[in-house]
Design a protein around this nucleic acid. Structure first.
Length: 466
RNA sequence: GCUCCCAUCGUCUAGAGGCCCAGGACAUGGCCCUCUCAAGGCCGUAACACCGGUUCGAAUCCGGUUGGGAGCGCCA
């Protein structure tokens, strides 16, 4: 039996949960599900200044909407400060960490000199070797990790392969600020170890601080987890994700009318593939996913493909499952309906002509309410003298129709068309305008069924009067 | 500047030395279907960044160049 897999998603509540974060969350979630393991949600809120409770709320809400449920947590790093302090004290005692009394000004001077010498700016370890200011400076010290000074650290990354860093390139990072609060890189290490995280799946912008995290783990006598650094997601223009496209809250996608499964399907295919398969249900994704198949290069967002996939999901998902999402969109338009049969009917009638639920809701507006206002241009074009004559005839025949079902309605239209030697279009368009107000709608027979006989006839009546 | 990462159609990708004068998907062009709009079907345009090397043979391996990205905080 393989040892149990534990993955985690560890966002910091300093902003929105955006597409990039969602994808790493998805990969972590998928891998845990695939391996029958557990998925942890951990909020990295050690930056007291920038972390905001409302951001935590939005992240939680986003994860819920996506259906990426966690098995453990959410944990909050701010609630684990005692634990971090304990570990820091141990490390200082074990001499794997030390106090540093350098002031910010001193550090700035040091970095300035290094940059001038075309070196990589980094802490030179003066306090580690007794050459710093020391306690007599009177300043509260920070605590730094004593990184190995020689040799190399190799990160065995699942997606990148082995990546080697010379230890002399790695400086002694601060693990506790002068006010005693612990810093990110340190908390991550303690948490991942304490929580038994087996696989760390995160953005490859973290690849550079992985060797230091690994060294800290070693100093703590812990086995480092398996690392998988996934490539970044770029905006549609190939540049970094910006507010204009992509770098918005994931909840924006809900508002825009995307199905969570469609968004997940789209994101899973960014940097990962399974042969030529494009469409994945949630279950298929879980069954096929493997971190070892993740690509190394960054990928750009493509809204058209997202739209296409959304429609694919709209068409291929059981309408019953889509109903709540459509209701949500309709509610935003002020339309409230609990008519399950009607809503399912709308989904079936509209799903091939709407790429989003928002579009579907908007296009279905005319099906609710008693009356509809006729689009002037549409009326001018189709409610001509001929069109009215057709409508009038239709009114009589449809009124006489007992069986208000698509085939019967279709037969009526077809019959009239043949009798008058007209194309179906000459019959359907005036009717469509009268009944929907415009020139576009689902097939006219299906539209009439959804509308009900009473309202359909009523609208024909009003169009003839108007 | 230094360190690290990356590089196949416009975009997402298949490809783990011969199956590839490179396959699929989105987008795009044309045709078909058609009561509108769609959806669908068929056909097409379109890529191995560059230069060397290894090999009988390279998109695939190695080196370099170029181009992109990330990191270098008492941020995460």
């Amino acid at each position: 039996m393989s040892s149990s897999v534990i993955t985690r998603f560890a966002p910091s509540p300093t902003g929105m949960l955006h597409i990039g974060g969602v994808r790493t969350a998805l990969f972590s979630w998928l891998y845990a599900r695939r391996m029958g393991g557990q998925f942890i949600l951990r909020v990295e809120d050690t930056d007291l200044e920038r972390s905001k409770p409302e951001h935590v709320g939005v992240i939680l809400e986003g994860m819920k909407w996506l259906g990426l449920g966690h098995d453990l947590g959410p944990y909050y790093q701010t609630q684990r400060f005692d634990r971090y302090k304990e570990v820091i004290a141990d490390m200082v005692k074990a001499k794997t960490a030390y106090h540093c009394y350098c002031s910010k000004e001193e550090l700035d001077v040091m970095r300035g000199a290094q940059q001038l010498a075309k070196e990589k700016p980094r802490y030179d370890g003066r306090c580690r070797h007794g050459k710093g200011p020391g306690p007599q400076s009177g300043r509260p010290p920070v605590v730094r990790f004593a990184n190995p000074e020689d040799g190399a650290t190799v990160v065995e990354d699942v997606v990148h392969g082995p990546v080697t860093f010379q230890n002399k390139e790695l400086d002694d990072l601060i693990i506790a600020r002068s006010d005693g609060t612990p810093t990110y890189n340190f908390c991550v290490v303690v948490d991942d170890a304490d929580m038994g995280v087996s696989h760390v799946i995160r953005g490859d912008d973290h690849l550079n601080n992985t060797p230091r995290q690994q060294n800290m783990l070693v100093a703590l006598g812990k086995q480092p987890p398996v690392y998988a650094h996934v490539p970044m997601i770029l905006g549609p223009d190939g540049a970094k994700l910006s507010k204009r496209h992509g770098a918005v809250s994931v909840l924006q996608y809900q508002e825009d009318g995307y199905l969570p499964d469609a968004l997940l399907n789209y994101l899973v295919r960014l940097g990962w593939s399974h042969g030529d398969q494009e469409f994945f249900t949630r279950a298929e994704m879980i069954a096929a996913f493997d971190v070892r198949d993740i690509n190394k290069s960054a990928s750009a967002m493509n809204m058209e493909k997202l739209l296409w996939l959304n429609q694919q999901h709209l068409v291929r998902t059981d309408p019953k499952e889509i109903v709540p999402h459509l209701q949500w969109q309709l509610a935003r338009l002020g339309i409230h309906s609990d008519d399950q049969a009607l809503l399912e009917g709308i989904i079936v009638a509209q799903r091939e002509r709407a790429k989003t639920l928002k579009e579907m809701a908007e296009n279905s507006r005319f099906l609710f309410g008693e009356h509809v206002t006729l689009d002037a241009k549409a009326a001018e074009k189709h409610l001509t003298a001929d069109g009215r004559a057709v409508l009038s005839e239709l009114r009589t025949r449809l009124a006489a129709l007992e069986d208000w079902q698509a085939p019967a309605i279709h037969a009526v239209l077809e019959g009239l068309a043949t009798e008058k030697s007209l194309g179906l279009g000459k019959i359907a368009q005036p009717l469509r305008v009268a009944v929907s107000g415009g020139t576009v709608s689902p097939p006219i027979d299906a539209t009439l069924v959804l509308l009900t006989k009473k309202r359909a006839l009523d609208r024909i009546e009003r169009a003839l009067i108007g």
